[in-house]
């Protein structure tokens, strides 16, 4: 029965990644290699981030929100952006279309994040007798994270790979990218600074991820037009 629950949560956490891969043209163009490379880049980035966090951050005994520390954490969070930049620009797997490349990178990125952050707690926690909503919420969070990662990858590819963008859109693109990149810090602030509960935070994440996805989709389409 509890293994059943584990499977349910695992489906919720990792299912969307597989569905995204198989449903979109990604599978037809065989972009799995790019995704795997992106995942490896994510691993490297996570390691660098870990070292940075361990070097620069004090360990706080209580779970309170310290603005200075959080600012530092947000800055370190931009290591992610650097990793994504590397994955988008330096990786040359095969000649794949630009709008497939960012999807593949975003997918690999999000999948690696889910595996790294959610698989172990799920394995340990969801198989216990005790029932909590936490693991289901965590699965939903993984979904939001997938959407956010792909949005960030899309915005990144707009910034670094597309040369002829409409000038008026550039500030908007940058603003959106900053918002998406600081999303982990924002949720951390909501959870600890404002004391929001987990369901509320997850709802917020889901909502913002959908909004950001819509905006980046529109931006992408707007940038696509002149070249087309």
């Amino acid at each position: 029965m509890t293994v059943f629950h584990f499977f349910n949560c695992a489906i919720l956490t990792f299912g969307p990644h597989a569905v995204y891969y198989s449903a979109t043209p990604l599978s037809e163009y065989d972009t799995l290699g790019t995704s795997i490379k992106a995942a490896l880049v994510y691993l490297g980035t996570a390691l660098v981030k870990l070292v940075c966090l361990a070097t620069f951050l004090k360990v706080s005994e209580n779970d309170s929100f310290d603005p200075y520390q959080e600012l530092l954490k947000a800055l370190i969070g931009f290591v992610d952006v650097a990793g994504l930049y590397f994955a988008l620009t330096q990786l040359t797997h095969r000649n794949i279309a630009q709008n497939h490349k960012f999807q593949a990178v975003g997918l690999g990125w999000a999948f690696a994040d889910s595996v790294l952050h959610r698989l172990a707690p799920l394995w340990v926690g969801a198989r216990g007798l005790e029932f909590t909503w936490d693991y289901i919420l965590q699965g939903i969070e993984a979904n939001a994270n997938l959407v956010l990662s792909i949005s960030l990858a899309a915005l990144g590819s707009l910034i670094w790979l597309r040369k002829n963008k409409p000038k008026t859109l550039i500030p908007i693109i940058y603003a959106c990218a900053v918002i998406v990149a600081t999303m982990p810090s924002i949720t951390s602030y909501l959870r600890r600074g404002l004391g929001w509960h987990f369901p509320k935070v997850v709802g917020f994440e889901l909502f913002t991820s959908l909004v950001m996805a819509f905006i980046s989709c529109q931006l992408f389409a707007a940038c696509q037009k002149p070249s087309a």
Binding site: M1, F4, H5, F7, N8, L129, E130, F131, I136
Partner: peptide, 13 residues
């Protein structure tokens, strides 16, 4: 332990 029912798990699936 607070446990969920099998019915709940089926529904969730």
């Amino acid at each position: 332990y607070q446990v969920a029912s099998v019915t709940f798990d089926l529904l969730l699936l």
